[in-house]
Structure formats: structure tokens, C-alpha cells
Design a protein around this nucleic acid. Structure first.
Lengths: 198, 198
DNA sequence: CTCGTATTAGTACCAAGTGCTAATAGCGGT
DNA sequence: ACCGCTATTAGCACTTGGTACTAATACGAG
């Protein structure tokens, strides 16, 4: 008995952790013991078999992948709107909006809420964002409710521009602010709406 | 023969893609054909067996995980990454990303691609966006492919900040640019750039 | 009705195991 | 030297989810 059982088991644990794709047979060669011994060790350490280990790793990725997709249509629910003036929306942050590692909301969701609201507040067939300046003031965590308030702060009809300021808060505390320069497709009176500046 | 073979095979392909963890037997029940038929279909479509599929998924994660972090959390597909230096991702704009009225992509998708790329390029356990300044230069339409290039332009280890510039183009033409000020969760010594924390 | 493709059935075999029983090794203590 | 005990090894039956192959059957078009 070269190494005591305990030592071997600890090493075994580490080896499998480092490379979950190793079979019992390969392990048995590596440690110079029989396959059965490896099996007994795994049993005692409650380490599952190769396929289960692989599956476990795979499931993790897969779930993460599926989870981090959603970013669709209009983000947040608009609860009040006064066209061309101001608007408010709420957005509940849930698991799929956060980094798994620390449950902090990914920036683009906050931006999406604010941007959607800025688009909505424009009283226009179609508004496009031209430019924006964002500040992420505090991290937002899963489970929190973000309230975004948008206000139209300026207009430049000649250039078809409007300026919108959005402040997002969680329980009264500001977490995000954004200034948006918006382009309105149609002019104020007639609904033109099919122009393509580029 | 309810559905022609071709249709079944296409559906089969999709089903397996959506859920690689499904056995031939489950598939055979789902499609109302025998297990052998499923096997023949897989053979023709060169879809590997369950375990190989799972293993493939697992290997991906494992490799990515060793490297760094949220490659599976990125919006768009990373096609090249040089940690702490630069990264490139592509994002295909489809119907669900655009306004129905004019088929122009909603701004937050462009932002999401750029922002997640900026996060990914940071060689860090966790990076958060602190501030960003965006310009939407030209409208992007459904069907177009957006290529985003991120470059780390500056570092301020003392304040745990890094600066990333992202330029997104469609067929060489810039459509979006963004400057990101990022916060990195973990501190790092200067002059390293490629250590092996994990 | 016949031809050809599609489908189903059945068999042998494989990898990487589990679960179980039984034999053997190694070593300490007395 | 012998007992006792744990550790190790061996062997066998059985499991999953397949591959590879052969053979039979069904179905639809010409």
C-alpha cells in the first residue's frame, strides 16, 4: 500500500474535479489500483459516474444559455404616459435578467427599459434613438422592481430631434440615469414617416 | 404516413437542437415512429447519439469556464476574443428584434450586443458597466448582420476601471459606436494580463 | 401488380457503468 | 503463529442508450 486510502481518495476527488471526463479505468491506471477500488472510492465519496458528471456539466451550460437569452420587444410595463411630456414604466428583475455569479442585473436590461420608455414617450409614429449617455449608479439585483421615469427635456423640430431624460430607481434610490437624443421619423403635423436618413 | 420524411427530419433536427438531452426512445414516442426510424434519421442527418451530444455541450462549457466567464451570456456570437484586449461578435438581426412598422432594429439590441461584448472582453470574474456613451449612426434592418468589435482602450487599476470602445458595423459600414466605462470586481496587479486565476 | 423507398423488428455487440458476492491481501495485536 | 479487520481485487448479472447489421414488412407511384 503505497499511499493510504485517505490520501488516494482526496487525490481522486481533485483529479475528477479537474477533469470530469475521465473513466474509472483511466483512473485505475493513474492511481495504480483496480477499477473496483476506484468504484468503491467514488461510492464512499459519492462521486457520480462519468456520464452523470458530464451530464451535470452540460445541463448547467444549457440552462445558462437558455436563461440568458430573453430580451424582447418592449421592456417593462408602462404604467403612466403623458405623450411628448413624460412617462413611467416598471420592470421586475428576475433570474433571467441577471448574471448567475452575483445576481446583478445585466446592463442592457436597464438600458432596454429606459430606451423603450424614451421611444414610447415620443408622440410619434416612430422614434429612433440617435445617441445616449448612460450612468449605472448602483447594481440592481434579482427580485427588485425598477421604476423608470422619462421626461422630455427639449425639442428641436427643425432637426427633428427631442431630448429625453430617464431616471430609474429602486425604492426611491436612483440606480440608473440616461439621456437620450431621439430622432422622430415624422414631422409634427402630417404623418410622413417613411424616410431613411443614412 | 402522416408527415413526409423530410418534414419529420427537419422537426427532429430542431427538437434535438432545442433539447439535446432527449433519447431516441422519447423521440420515437414524440414523433409516433419507431426507434429505428429515429436512428436512421439521425444517421442521415449525422446527428450523434445522446451521450455524444451531451458530451459536446459539456466540453464547450468546460473549456469556456477554464478560460474565463460569460461566453454563454453574451448576446450575439463571439467569434474571436483576446482577453483584456479585444473581441468580436456577430449578431443577426431578425424579425423579433425590429419595429414592425419599418423593420428597424430596436436600439437596445445593438446596445445589448455591444455591452455584453464589453463585459466579456474584460478578463475578470465580473465586470459591470458604470457608464456609457452611445451613438446610433444608421438604422439597422431585419436580416442584416451586425459585427461588433470591442477594444480595451484604457485601464485604471487604482479605481478598478477599464475603458472599452465598441464599433458595430453592417457590411463594413459603421452603424453604432459605444464607449464603455467598466468596473471590475476583482483587483489585479498591473503588468500581468494573463494569469491563471480560477 | 410490381418496384423502390420507408419503416419496423430483431439480433449481436459496446461502453461505462451499478450492485452484489466472494475471495484474497496486508497488517496489527496478542 | 494465529485471529480479526479493513482494504483490495475479482467475477458475474444487469442497465442505458446506443451502433451495426440483416431481414421482414408496408406503402405509394407508376
Amino acid at each position: 500500500m503505497k499511499k493510504p486510502k485517505k490520501v488516494r481518495q482526496q487525490e481522486l476527488k481533485q483529479t475528477i474535479k479537474d477533469n470530469p471526463f475521465i473513466t474509472d479505468e483511466e483512473l485505475s491506471r493513474e492511481f495504480g489500483v483496480s477499477v473496483q477500488t476506484i468504484r468503491l472510492d467514488r461510492l464512499e465519496l459519492s462521486i457520480p459516474e462519468l456520464r452523470e458528471r458530464i451530464k451535470h456539466v452540460a445541463v448547467q451550460t444549457f440552462e445558462d444559455e437558455v436563461k440568458s437569452l430573453p430580451i424582447d420587444e418592449v421592456i417593462g410595463e408602462i404604467i403612466d404616459i403623458d405623450l411628448d411630456e413624460r412617462a413611467i414604466s416598471i420592470f421586475d428583475v428576475s433570474e433571467e435578467h441577471v448574471f448567475q455569479r452575483n445576481r446583478i442585473a445585466r446592463g442592457h436590461h436597464l438600458f432596454a427599459q429606459a430606451n423603450s420608455l424614451a421611444v414610447a414617450v415620443m408622440n410619434d409614429e416612430l422614434a429612433l434613438t440617435v445617441r445616449s449617455d448612460l450612468r449605472f449608479l448602483r447594481p440592481v439585483k434579482a427580485g427588485q422592481r425598477v421604476v423608470a421615469k422619462a421626461e422630455v427635456t427639449g425639442r428641436e423640430p427643425a432637426r427633428r430631434r427631442a431630448y429625453v431624460k430617464v431616471v430609474s430607481t429602486v425604492e426611491q434610490v436612483p440606480v440608473f440615469t440616461g439621456e437620450f437624443e431621439m430622432y422622430r421619423e415624422s414631422e409634427r403635423e402630417e404623418g410622413d414617416g417613411s424616410e431613411n436618413r443614412s
